[in-house]
């Protein structure tokens, strides 16, 4: 908040949060899912009250005014004489009812785990989002049967990663999306071409040439995965942006924090998902924040970027994700 003149202050909107990096800062707009680059000097300026009347140098005064006006034009901030009427967002409150927020269930041609049983267990844990990943081809009938397992579930968003086959045409996918409102995103790998379709306002279909053969293809860090919304930002401040309240079943049926990790906490045929949640070691991964991770803690994108603990740069559990090639000290993607 910056005092402009007597009884007039410049404020950022509550949903626009500045984040300082090693060399530059960003202002995350948590309502519009965007961010704006600013210099660290502007970040520092926004974090302390300044009275324009006290700036003797007229050139500096002009600069500050120009910056504030620019931020106002961008819809990031505003002038007010009543700053006390605009409190900050309370990121401390916990408004997630889910015991498990999301889950990944992997399948390959040798998998024999019972999806319906897993979905019933996830419903008891109030899980609201699931990703199904199929590394090998499956028939359309089997796929439809898998989707029907969610009919009585608490899952409100479903994402599917499928291997390209004859029936995975755009027309079929459109029909499947129409019949399954929970299904928000379909990614079809091993495709010969790349194609992105948005059949309605809520759903996406992506055909990609990537050859996703197993869980080890996960963990990519790129601007594509940046998310600037309140839920994600809040999660990043207190817990791990990938693994928080996540349970996974790998293609062999083992329960893990992430299918790409080695440590398992039992087999789905013999262990209940809720029993894993009593294991403190299982929940340890949930609490690794970006602020705890080497290099990430200096990155301006740390609260809008996904994390990966399966692939890290060295043996230290708190080291930078291996598949991230951003250098926050030089602001370059290598």
């Amino acid at each position: 908040m910056i005092k402009i003149k007597e009884n007039l202050f410049f404020m950022l909107y509550a949903c626009c949060i500045p984040v300082k990096g090693a060399k530059r800062s960003i202002i995350c707009d948590l309502q519009r899912d965007t961010f704006t680059y600013v210099t660290n000097e502007i970040f520092d300026m926004l974090n302390r009250p300044i009275s324009l009347d006290k700036i003797k140098d007229s050139a500096e005064k002009n600069d500050v005014t120009a910056i504030l006006n620019y931020l106002k034009e961008q819809g990031i901030g505003f002038y007010t004489s009543n700053p006390e009427n605009f409190p900050k967002i309370d990121f401390a409150s916990n408004d997630f009812p889910e015991i498990v927020k999301n889950a990944i269930i992997d399948f390959d041609k040798n998998s024999d785990h019972n999806l319906l049983s897993i979905v019933e267990q996830l419903s008891e844990l109030r899980c609201s989002a699931v990703e199904l990943r199929f590394f090998d081809e499956i028939s359309q009938d089997n796929f439809t049967e898998y989707l029907s397992c969610f009919a009585k579930s608490t899952v409100r968003a479903l994402k599917v990663v499928l291997k390209y086959s004859e029936w995975t045409t755009i027309e079929n996918m459109d029909e499947i999306l129409f019949d399954n409102k929970r299904l928000r995103k379909i990614v079809i790998h091993h495709s010969s071409n790349t194609l992105s379709q948005k059949p309605n306002t809520q759903s996406r279909i992506h055909y990609v040439t990537d050859q996703i053969k197993d869980a080890y293809h996960c963990g990519n860090i790129s601007p594509y995965y940046f998310i600037s919304n309140i839920s994600f930002f809040k999660e990043a401040l207190t817990s791990n942006t990938c693994l928080d309240k996540k349970v996974c079943v790998d293609s062999k049926g083992y329960i893990k924090n992430c299918p790409a990790m080695d440590t398992s906490y039992g087999h789905i045929n013999t262990t209940k998902l809720k029993d894993c949640l009593n294991n403190e070691q299982f929940k340890k991964m949930w609490h690794i924040q970006k602020d705890d991770i080497e290099i990430c803690k200096d990155c301006e994108f740390r609260y809008i970027c996904t994390d990966c603990r399966a692939f890290i740069t060295n043996d230290n559990l708190f080291s930078k994700p291996k598949k991230c090639n951003y250098d926050p000290y030089e602001n370059t993607w290598n």
Binding site: I104, V130, A157, R184, Q202, S222, I227, C308
Partner: peptide, 12 residues
């Protein structure tokens, strides 16, 4: 049904 607020995995 809701769009989820983040990507659950990042395999692409």
């Amino acid at each position: 049904p809701e769009p989820y607020y983040k990507a659950i995995s990042s395999c692409i």
